[in-house]
Simulated assay, not measured.
Amino acid sequence: MSVRQGLLTLLEQQPMYGYQLRMEFESRTGSTWPLNIGQVYTTLARLDRDGMVEGAGSDEEGHVMYRITDAGRAEVAAWFTTPVQRTQPPRDELAIKLALAVTMPDIDVAAVIQGQRRATMTALQDYTRLKRTAEDSTAAGGQVDPAGLGWGLVLDSLVFAAEAEIRWLDHCEARVRRAARERRPSVESAPAPQDTKADA
């Protein structure tokens, strides 16, 4: 997630102060990625330093306003026309957890997978419920609200990611089981037990 480009995109519409930017960002993304107000002001300071935004005075309540510069507009345009690169995937805590779990002798990997699957299924149900609510409110009003559409796209992304994670967990479970079977010596190859009793 790029807070920098997100704030610049919002400032393209009109000058705003930090708290307004935070509220607009969270409104348009359904508060999926809440922003810390300190992060907003730190980002604004960097954007100002880099010539992407500039001070636009204060409003009647004394809030310091920021507006986008031509350089900032160029950065927003470049961001929207440049595909998101996947060459450096973000750290995935679940993938790291399972990669380490399979190397630890005392960890019940199947239990880890099952616990995560239950949690992901719960999240998927929550996202689906939110999506239905969002679609119902849009249908009731009769008009498509751009912020509502944006929130719907975020929800779609979360639903698809949860579904993909469940499929991946099923795949992991199958691989772990197969690996366990391959490590276990087969009954056929095991030596027959020796009869230690003397013949009568």
Rank of each mutant, 00 (worst) to 15 (best):
T32H: 07
L124F: 11
P191V: 07
T81H: 12
A180V: 05
D92R: 12
A45D: 11
T133G: 06
V3Y: 03
V64G: 10
R22S: 00
F25N: 01
A134I: 01
T120R: 08
Q114E: 15
T122N: 13
A71P: 00
A179G: 08
R73N: 14
G142I: 03
D92C: 12
V154D: 03
R181L: 12
F80P: 00
H63Q: 14
I166Q: 04
T133I: 15
A179I: 06
Q143F: 09
F25R: 00
T103Q: 14
L10K: 03
V154F: 05
D136P: 01
G51S: 12
L44M: 13
A77H: 09
G51P: 07
R183W: 04
P185N: 09
Q143T: 13
R181D: 09
I166H: 02
A140L: 13
L130C: 06
P83S: 13
Q13G: 12
S31I: 00
V154R: 02
F80E: 11
D108M: 02
M1F: 06
C172P: 01
S58I: 08
C172A: 15
V154N: 02
L35M: 10
I37K: 03
V64L: 14
M52P: 00
M1H: 09
E163R: 14
M52D: 10
A139Q: 14
R184L: 11
Y19R: 15
R22C: 02
T42A: 10
G115F: 08
I37W: 02
E163K: 12
Y41C: 00
A140R: 14
W151N: 04
E24V: 01
R46G: 03
F25Y: 15
E173A: 15
E60V: 11
T43E: 04
M1I: 03
L169C: 07
V176Q: 03
A200L: 11
A161T: 09
V159N: 03
F80N: 14
A101H: 03
W79S: 09
T122H: 14
T69Y: 07
D156A: 07
T81V: 12
Y127L: 06
Q114A: 15
R183S: 09
S157T: 13
A56M: 06
E182G: 02
E54D: 12
T128I: 04
E75C: 07
P83R: 13
L155T: 05
Q114H: 13
A200Q: 09
E135F: 02
